[in-house]
């Protein structure tokens, strides 16, 4: 299992996938909003999303786990 982490402080703008969904390497999983800019967070590997740990609107810090992938 791997973790998809936030690379900066910001708010969760959009969650693009749901648990159980198959994703490919480089696919955007979540879009953060920081300083009025949308920052896409992509999966670094192919797999199945096991858990989404944040909700749209949540505030996250650099390094927080956003989702896990199997």
């Amino acid at each position: 299992m791997a973790e998809i982490k936030s690379n900066m402080a910001g708010s969760v703008w959009k969650v693009l996938v749901a648990p159980g969904e198959k994703v490919t390497e480089g696919q955007d999983i979540i879009i953060l909003e920081s300083m009025k800019m949308e920052i896409p967070i992509a999966s670094e590997q192919e797999g199945i999303i096991s858990e989404i740990k944040v909700n749209e609107g949540d505030f996250v810090n650099d390094g927080d786990v956003l989702a896990t992938i199997d």
Binding site: M8, A9, G10, S34, M35, M37, I39
Partner: peptide, 13 residues
């Protein structure tokens, strides 16, 4: 701007 000069992504802190 508080941002990365290469990627132009924000850099709060």
């Amino acid at each position: 701007y508080a941002e990365d000069p290469k990627t132009m992504y924000p850099s709060p802190g």
